[in-house]
Design a protein around this nucleic acid. Structure first.
Length: 535
RNA sequence: GCCCCCGUAGCUCAGUGGAUAGAGCAUCGGUUUCCUAAACCGUGAGCGCAGGUUCGACUCCUGCCGGGGGCGCCA
């Protein structure tokens, strides 16, 4: 049984014995930051004392007494501490069990969770307009959306990834007109596309082609290619044009009208989104009869529920104003408020030579996603994007990104991974083979570095669950850094293949490295990063 | 004016309502007859301000200050 389960069960028994009724559903266990507070700690006495009309410290003491009299597996001591924490001190054997569990689970099974079993999620991300290359911001959403998808999948969710292509409307017309102008050697229209890529692509434009349709194809091909180079793929490239042509729009409007939220004013058709918290109502059909982008978007989002019961949009900060109106529309169509989720991420700022690089299509200083991948490589680019929360504006120093040095945090993790793989190579060269795990005495792993590494590995399953709940893949990145640090420390102080190392210890350490290979492998895979096996 | 995000160490950032707030980089000093020193060890310094909720607040709530983004019958 998992350590946590046996500790929880012990606490439940203790609470019952102490006369706490009802026993709380959730019993929280934490890993204390301070080693003096044990290996696992529970605040259950603090959390329940008030409702039970008890003194937290006294209740805690009762729990401690009960647990001490019925020690759960691995537990060596139970103490009351502070205002009423129950702290469990465990023998190293629990960490040795962790090693065996990791190895048994392997790369496919370690840190998996079934919290999403039977549930499905539809995630839309990037969804850039097909009017030009992806820029650095899009690359952030690509890395984020892909990693989040991987996390959901690792937790048992059925995941469907979509990219919505706005392949109709004013912007695409302008883009086509810009291509046509450049092809004729003229300047693009006033509010057209000025970027250098338009001139380049215009040279490829076949004379007979429809510039709008051709331009959309060209831009999409460009975007797909960059995404592929970042190892980001989608299950569906949804076309706005198709949504419009499918008749789904009309059906959606009918539903909204039937629900009573559609009204006419000033010759336009409106949706009463203000009933659902939007700051004002929104136009569906303009007074000239044309649909706004909002209409096909509603139809598309409604349709997405066929491909996932939880619908998630990942948007840049410049689209946050759009959230409430779409949430309103989905609720009008009968979708529960919590079934539609928008993750709004902040911008990317690029710095070069110590100064901010202004992203301007006009000035030609746009940093494309392609530039980042070419500069740094897909792995470094992705891991860099996943270093921090999407709630923060990310500043990427291009000089640092490119530097193949320890100034770049990415290499710290990659180096740990390389070391793990190098051990296998070295062992092979020296003809040292691992014995079957069952024949190896893991209790020889007692060095503080070995235990620290095992502690780190023991945390990944919880990190994964927390990361998916918080929609925060960066928490996995943080873990890989911590695990890498533990590996480096272990590597420094605990020789493995050296001649003077005892055979039995060598075997145990080789298995520890194997478990670390699995752990780092799972962590990096969740981030979509394929770290090199050598550097 | 309204809406969203942020404000933590010199810099870039972590921090599921818990106990003494952590990493990397930068600074200074140390470690290699030994599996890659892209490593390890030591070193100083911090929660924007003011209230509130709570047994307990960096975390939740309110206000203020500061930075970024957004408020179209554009997408």
């Amino acid at each position: 049984m998992d350590v946590r389960e046996s500790l929880r069960s012990a606490l439940r028994d203790a609470l019952e014995t102490a006369g706490v009724d009802p026993v709380p559903e959730v019993i929280t266990l934490e890993r204390p930051a301070n080693p003096e507070h044990g290996d696992w700690s529970s605040n259950v006495a603090l959390a329940t004392a008030k409702a039970a009309g008890r003194n937290p410290r006294e209740l805690g003491q009762q729990l401690v007494d009960h647990c001490a009299a019925n020690l759960p597996p691995h537990v060596t001591a139970v103490e009351i501490a502070g205002p009423g924490f129950v702290n469990f001190h465990l023998g190293d054997s629990w960490l040795h069990d962790v090693l065996a569990d990791v190895v048994e689970a392997g790369t496919d099974g370690f840190a998996r969770s079934d919290v999403g079993a039977g549930s499905s999620v539809n995630i839309e991300y990037v969804s850039a307009n097909p009017t030009g290359p992806l820029h650095a911001g899009h690359a952030r959403w690509a890395a984020y959306g892909d990693a989040l998808s991987r996390l959901f999948a690792h937790c048992g969710y059925a995941v469907h990834r979509e990219f919505y292509v706005n392949d109709r409307g004013v912007q695409t017309e302008l883009f086509g007109a810009s291509l046509t102008a450049r092809a004729a050697g003229e300047e693009p229209p006033e509010d057209g596309y000025q970027g250098g890529y338009v001139t380049e692509w215009a040279e490829e434009l076949p004379g007979a082609a429809d510039p709008v349709a051709w331009g959309i194809e060209r831009a999409q091909a460009d975007q797909r290619q960059v995404l592929m180079s970042m190892n980001v793929e989608f299950d569906r490239w949804a076309s706005e044009r198709s949504v419009v042509q499918s008749g789904e729009m009309e059906k959606a409007i009918d539903e909204l009208r039937a629900a009573g939220y559609v009204f006419e004013d000033d010759g336009a058709m409106w949706l009463r989104t203000s009933d659902f918290g939007d700051e004002k109502d929104r136009v569906l059909f303009k007074s000239d009869g044309d649909a706004t982008y909002f209409v096909p978007d509603i139809a598309y989002h409604h349709q997405k529920y066929d491909r996932g019961e939880l619908v998630i949009d990942i948007l840049g900060a410049d689209h946050h104003g759009y959230v409430k109106r779409m949430a309103a529309a989905m609720q009008m169509m009968g979708h529960a408020a919590e079934s539609y989720e928008v993750l709004v991420g902040q911008n990317v700022t690029l710095v070069r030579d110590g100064a901010e690089v202004r992203l301007s299509k006009r000035a030609g200083t746009m940093i494309e996603a392609r530039d980042l991948v070419e500069l740094a490589g897909a792995d470094v680019a992705r891991l860099t994007f996943l270093l921090q929360s999407i709630d923060t504006t990310q500043t990427i120093d291009l000089d640092l990104l490119v530097a193949q040095s320890n100034e770049n945090p990415v290499y710290y993790v990659q180096y740990a991974n390389a070391r793990v793989h190098s051990l296998a190579r070295q062992a092979k060269e020296r003809e040292i083979a691992r014995l079957p795990l069952a024949d190896v005495d893991l209790s020889l792993l007692t060095h503080e570095r070995e235990l620290a590494l095992l502690r780190s590995l023991s945390e990944l399953p919880d990190v994964v669950i927390r990361a998916v709940e918080n929609r925060g893949p960066h928490q996995v990145t943080m873990w890989t850094r911590e695990c890498a640090a533990a590996l480096h420390g272990f590597w420094h102080d605990c020789p493995i293949l050296r001649d003077d190392v005892d055979d039995a210890i060598r075997q145990a350490r080789m298995w520890l490295v194997e478990a670390t290979r699995i752990g780092l492998g799972v962590g990096l895979d969740l981030l979509g990063v394929s770290a090199p096996e050598s550097m």
